[in-house]
């Protein structure tokens, strides 16, 4: 499979700054260094910036469109993702433009729908996706929670994994389900999603090599009880945590082996590049996606590391 990805650096930033027409990113939030990392690194970028936010991370969003620091359009209130986000993108004539979608801090509902639209509806001139990795995750600040093995301050509340995923709404069939789940540091999400999906077979995927040495081991340790409980340790697979391409290859292999027997359900609760890979794969192959839509918690991470840019024009 053709793979093209870059680490944004002094050597290539001018190329991206001058060749991208619109950056679609999360509404910049001062406390979150990672959400602003891309635009900080793309010095000299003068194109359009579409800033998105979604309080409910599910069905509504708001936006601000900027050029040269000036606001040229803005939603007054929260508006429904379906159909308004498509209307907005359509109004920007993106078929003649190069688009860079920054998924670093973007709410997942917006990432899913964006990928669905760019794969199925709007073919852009060039299509890039960027992701800035975190430096570290915040430690849990709880009183001696001896029964919890989750060391990181992760999400407290979810919309729930029985919710539809925008752009990937699909009627369930009567076939048995095979769940492919990209895992991270939050084992309760895996349990909840498994409960609501009732798969016959599970393939867990870990981000390895990870952003930092040892993070894959933490994810493995945190999920090991659950893997044992579901008897799926032997099915575990590793995919590069910083790339959407590696996981797409793994998904292809698994689908080839199992498609005749099962409906494949993809569940990206691990690293964001995995979420991107799964969303791309699902949009291209009309596969099911299951997701639980975390709410409330904004920043589970601290600092910003490398920024990856994936060139996906050929893929979509």
């Amino acid at each position: 499979m053709y793979q093209e990805s870059y680490i944004l650096s002094d050597h290539n930033r001018a190329i991206f700054s001058s060749n991208v027409d619109i950056v679609i990113t999360d509404s910049l939030q001062e406390e979150d260094h990672r959400s602003s990392a891309l635009l900080t690194k793309l010095k000299g970028y003068k194109g359009l910036i579409l800033l998105l936010s979604s309080k409910d991370n599910y069905q509504s969003f708001s936006y601000t469109l900027k050029q040269n620091g000036e606001i040229i359009d803005k939603s007054l209130n929260s508006i429904p993702i379906i159909p308004q986000y498509f209307k907005l993108l359509n109004s920007l004539n993106l078929t003649t433009k190069s688009v860079l979608l920054d998924i670093t801090s973007m709410r997942q509902a917006l990432i899913f729908y964006s990928i669905s639209v760019f794969v199925k509806e709007i073919k852009t001139k060039l299509f890039f996706v960027s992701y800035t990795q975190p430096k570290k995750y915040e430690r849990k600040n709880l009183p001696n929670l001896k029964d919890s093995e989750e060391p990181f301050d992760l999400i407290e509340m979810f919309k729930g994994s029985s919710s539809p995923v925008p752009g990937f709404i699909k009627k369930a069939s009567k076939k048995d389900k095979l769940l492919i789940v990209s895992l991270g540091f939050d084992k309760k999400r895996f349990v909840a999603i498994n409960e609501s999906t009732n798969p016959k077979e599970i393939y867990p995927i870990f981000g390895f090599p990870s952003y930092k040495p040892g993070w894959d081991q933490i994810a493995l340790k945190l999920n090991s009880d659950t893997l044992l409980r579901y008897d799926v340790f032997d099915n575990a697979k590793n995919c590069l945590a910083t790339s959407p391409f590696d996981i797409i290859n793994t998904l292809k292999e698994l689908e080839l082996n199992w498609k005749s027997q099962y409906d494949i359900y993809l569940c990206p609760i691990g690293p964001r590049p995995h979420l991107l890979g799964m969303a791309l794969y699902a949009a291209l192959n009309n596969t099911y996606i299951v997701y639980d839509f975390p709410l409330e918690k904004k920043f589970g991470s601290q600092g910003s590391g490398k920024t990856y840019i994936y060139h996906l024009t050929n893929l979509i």
């Binding site: 029964d147 919890s148 407290e156 509340m157 979810f158 919309k159 729930g160 994994s161 029985s162 309760k188 999400r189 349990v191 909840a192 409960e195 609501s196 009880d225 409980r229 639980d292 709410l295």
Partner: peptide
Amino acid sequence: SKNKIDEIESYEPHGFR
């Protein structure tokens, strides 16, 4: 018993609480 206590966290949407 321990598994069931652990499981509470996975009750969407308020399992943590």
